[in-house]
């Protein structure tokens, strides 16, 4: 059983006003096949947590650990973490001019597996994932994320999730900006990955609606850089109705 274990994680960023502490001791343990939802107010540090797990150079880890099956991820480079089995679906996926989707996906798959995928099965997998995500074939020849609509970018992230088969994925507001149909399509993609590979998911969201499709085992409330409360799916409903007010009183908000 794979486990992703985050312990007492402290993260800061350098700003023009000096060092800013964002994560203040995050503890989270995600088991294989589990889905953990993270909800919390804007600016509470959810994306920072996602980036810190993936190893974005802008975020400095000042304490704590992130272990995948007992192996420390924080000592590894960004690509090494991906090869160890971590994946981040970004809130704002980056455009890469001149690099086609098909070239990008094949290069990533080759890097992850250490060898090029067999051409026939690769094309077949790519085709069926794109069909399932209702992505037109023409996307293969388009440049990565260039000119994609918000919803198309998110589908492209989930396409990668399906094809690259990580052990754990952080989905940072993958549901934002999706219409109802797209939300269902994307959710089905996540559920397929869970079923076929036992993917563990850390799902960052502001809305309960995606949680109707991707059922969380746990819901964590994220406030001021740490987990303030945890519960089951019912907590998400309550948060959506009541907001975060009861957590913010007395919380350390700058």
């Amino acid at each position: 059983m794979s486990v992703l274990k985050i312990e007492d994680l402290h993260v800061s960023v350098e700003t023009e006003q000096g060092t800013k502490q964002i994560l203040r001791g995050v503890d989270l343990t995600i088991g294989e096949g589990e889905t953990h939802a993270i909800m919390g107010p804007n600016g509470s540090g959810k994306s920072t947590l996602a980036y810190a797990i993936a190893g974005h150079p802008k975020y400095q880890v000042t304490g704590g650990s992130v272990q995948l099956d007992g192996e420390e991820m924080l000592d590894k480079s960004v690509d090494e973490r991906a090869r160890a089995g971590l994946f981040l679906a970004m809130q704002y996926p980056v455009e890469i001019p001149g690099v086609s989707v098909s070239n990008f996906l094949r290069t990533a798959k080759t890097a992850l597996d250490g060898e090029a995928p067999p051409i026939r099965s690769w094309i077949k997998d790519l085709d069926s994932s794109m069909t399932a995500l209702r992505m037109d074939r023409t996307f293969r020849e388009r440049n990565v994320n260039e000119g994609f609509s918000g919803g198309e970018k998110k589908r492209h992230e989930i396409l990668q999730l399906e094809l690259l088969k990580p052990k754990f994925a952080v989905l940072d507001e993958t549901d934002s900006g999706l219409d109802v149909d797209a939300l269902k399509i994307v959710s089905e993609g996540v559920n397929r990955a869970k079923e076929t590979t036992g993917l563990g998911v850390l799902l960052i969201t502001h809305y309960n609606r995606i949680l109707r499709y991707v059922k969380p085992d746990f819901v964590h409330v994220f406030v001021a850089g740490r987990v303030a409360e945890q519960g089951g799916p019912e907590l998400a409903v309550r948060l959506e109705n009541e907001g975060y007010d009861r957590f913010l009183t007395g919380a350390n908000v700058e």
């Binding site: 960004v78 690509d79 980056v94 890097a111």
Partner: peptide, 30 residues
Amino acid sequence: FDDEQLFYLQSRGISEEEARRLVVRGFLAE
């Protein structure tokens, strides 16, 4: 180099060297 482009590629398992090559190649391919 756009660091965000490199980060995106690396977060998909692509090594830094290869990510740099992809970005330059893409830039000139136009």
